[in-house]
Write a protein that binds this DNA or RNA. Sequence first.
DNA 1: CGAATGAATATTTCAGAGAAAATTCACTCT
DNA 2: AGAGTGAATTTTCTCTGAAATATTCATTCG
Lengths: 205, 205
Amino acid sequence: MAPQAKMVDTQAQATRAEILHHAHDLFAHYGYWKTNIGDIAERSGMSPGNLYRYYRNKQAIGLASVAQYFQQVEAAMLATLADRSDPAEARIRAALRTCVEHLVVEFERNPKLVELAEFLCGDDEGLKILDAHVAVKRQTIAAEIRLGIQDGSLKACDPETTAATILMALKAFWTPMTLVLWRDQSTVLPDLEAILDLMFDGLRT
Amino acid sequence: MAPQAKMVDTQAQATRAEILHHAHDLFAHYGYWKTNIGDIAERSGMSPGNLYRYYRNKQAIGLASVAQYFQQVEAAMLATLADRSDPAEARIRAALRTCVEHLVVEFERNPKLVELAEFLCGDDEGLKILDAHVAVKRQTIAAEIRLGIQDGSLKACDPETTAATILMALKAFWTPMTLVLWRDQSTVLPDLEAILDLMFDGLRT
DNA sequence: CGAATGAATATTTCAGAGAAAATTCACTCT
DNA sequence: AGAGTGAATTTTCTCTGAAATATTCATTCG
């Protein structure tokens, strides 16, 4: 019974993933609003009604699409941090650079994804997912700061608070609305570096 | 002829100011979109048509209203900086605090002004005005950094670039769209201080 | 002649009907 | 029973003409 239930679950998981994959393609191509359930169903080789056995509604698909992206970014951050040979500062900077790079590349590749970001910010549940993602980033950075403090390369401070402050100063880099307004995409990464320089160096003599 | 022309100008200026004053009241009260030319004209004691002798169109009135607010903020910054008895760091921090305080207070007092901000960001000319305002802030802060470098309290750096970087890190504090999303208005100022602490102190030992 | 008006014109918004999409559900098939 | 369907139902968009608003302009007024 257990293995059978597991198999069924696995099959359902696969179908969910399949749907999500096609949905993401469509969102990236046509934008969230122009993509309709019928299209997603067709691409996934099923009827619209059947989609609802796998996702509560269209909104849920949109949120799952974003959540999947966030997971990828989180994974990329962790991968960046895996190499402990660099000092804490370099690792933290690399991790933040990875996040921003991901976002910039993604938006450059398919500008229609901005719609997905707008949808996310205009949705209560979406904001919760966003908060959760930021929380993960904060904890990840905090852990690195803790290591830096331990090895003496970073000042004593509350790692969680400091991580939150760093992320706040970089808010403009992951708020899609402001990111879109960035004059010239090519200056995004240098600008990020400038802020990081300032935060690590300090202004005072 | 010259004095007469001057008097005419002065009269026109006064009328313009009068219109702007009423328009700003209405924008704050009813929001930019709900306020109509007829209302502004009535309050200003003239016909709608006559308004166009003083402002090109409604957009121009909206922009003038924002420009006036920016001027006030710039003046408040300069006033804050006038007292040279404090060290450079304290003066810079006070000036930035002044800007953010102004914005927060203004938005708390009349939330409808958010519409004016949205209008500003959705308008080409509006973005230019915004850019100009940021440029003034940058120059103002840069001048103070220069003083700090001279008196030895701040590190040697390019003042203009550094000022630009500081403003970029604080972007979330003057982008109305993000400011509105701030969970709890009461944390805005402490959050600002945290970022400033980080930028002045530095993270590294 | 400059200030001002209000009717004339152009543009924008808005309600409501029809169309399209989202969601549900009774049902089939395996 | 669980996967799936497609027609039925509900909700959301879209389009269109009417109403409201913005803007212009011929004309009046002092």
